[in-house]
């Protein structure tokens, strides 16, 4: 709940892509081909580099690894007042409770459907927008549009939800007024299970598309301009150039981002969904994170929510490894 805040301020796109390059750059030279002696000699030589790393390593040990023993409360009936040492150990009970809950499948389904819709409808949007922006020839116009479309990223989701209500309510919302004029009927967008997912995806598209273009624009800026000139000389039109030069140059980024998104399919934004849920759409709206909140956090069930979180992380790792394997099969470099 809070941990994610720390790194949740920039789009998954940027951060995830960079993570991937990290994994993929592991150098074969580093494999244990050299003798221990030479290794130690080199370590001595690079003493200053190790000294430089001390603050960083201390940071990770103290603030990241030290708190990780907290994950063990997934196997406890953790009572804050008793602390970690005195709380009762319950083995897998929290996991059993979760899997045996009648809501488990509903939540699983809702979470996956929403994530898949997100991948199908939201994911291509920044790519399309970036491609369109890339075709703009007036630099000033391009920069102006860029600046504008980044803004929503900085607006609180509470404000976004409240604006959605204002615009879509049947009681005089701008969209429904328009609908009534055009079709003579109003649609209860906010209270129908059918419209819940489109609304959520729409909000995400509105809020994050612009900011999500950054990484693609960055990749596009790196494309060698000579390629275009050569293609133009060969008589390729703009559309052909797009297909044969522009797209392939960002294909790897797209694949990497897609893989990493797969690792996150169980993680839908909590606040957004929580704010948009109501009695009429709950059967499609309840997802892992909102479930953990209502069952766990509001009632102080730390162990239970930690167990669900742990389950989610493990599934996430499996999914990333799986999609990575598939990507490799199809000839992309993958992550590892």
């Amino acid at each position: 709940m809070s941990e994610n805040d720390y790194c949740g301020h920039f789009p998954i796109g940027v951060s995830m892509a960079t993570m991937s390059t990290a994994i993929e750059t592991i150098d074969p030279m580093d494999l244990k081909t050299e003798s221990g002696k030479r290794r130690i000699a080199r370590m001595k030589k690079e003493k200053s580099l190790y000294i430089l790393m001390i603050p960083g390593i201390l940071y990770f040990v103290i603030f990241k690894y030290l708190p990780m023993w907290g994950l063990t409360i997934a196997f406890q009936n953790f009572q804050p007042i008793l602390g970690f040492l005195k709380s009762e150990w319950v083995g897998m009970e929290n996991f059993r409770d979760f899997f045996s809950s009648p809501d488990f499948f509903m939540i699983f389904r809702n979470t996956l459907v929403l994530s898949l819709l997100n991948i199908i409808f939201y994911f291509p949007m920044p790519i399309v927008l970036a491609l369109l922006l890339n075709e703009v020839r007036q630099a000033a116009f391009k920069r102006a549009i860029q600046t504008i479309v980044y803004i929503p990223h900085f607006i609180s989701i509470v404000v976004v939800a409240s604006l959605t209500y204002v615009l879509f309510t049947t009681a005089g919302g701008a969209v429904n007024i328009l609908m009534e004029r055009l079709t003579g009927e109003t649609i209860n967008f906010l209270g129908s299970p059918r419209w819940f997912r489109p609304l959520i995806i729409g909000q995400t598209i509105w809020k994050e598309t612009g900011y999500g273009t950054i990484i693609f624009l960055a990749a596009l800026a790196g494309v060698d301009q000579n390629l275009y000139e050569a293609a133009a000389i060969d008589g390729a039109g703009r559309f052909k150039q797009l297909i044969h030069i522009t797209l392939p140059s960002i294909a790897n980024v797209i694949v990497i981002l897609l893989i990493l998104r797969m690792g996150q399919v169980l993680d839908n934004g909590f606040e957004q969904i929580f704010l948009m849920t109501n009695a009429l759409n709950r059967n499609v709206a309840e997802v892992f994170n909102t479930y953990v909140y209502t069952v766990g956090i509001t009632q102080g069930a730390f162990s239970y929510s930690t167990a669900v979180g742990l389950f989610k992380s493990v599934i996430g790792v499996i999914l990333v490894l799986g999609t990575n394997g598939i990507a490799k099969k199809f000839g992309h470099s993958g992550l590892y």
Partner: peptide
Amino acid sequence: PGRNGIINMVIFTMIFSGGLIPT
């Protein structure tokens, strides 16, 4: 030497975190 180990250690923290109270 040791670089990959440290990078993996960093990446591991992206997936697992100890949670609110331990932190």
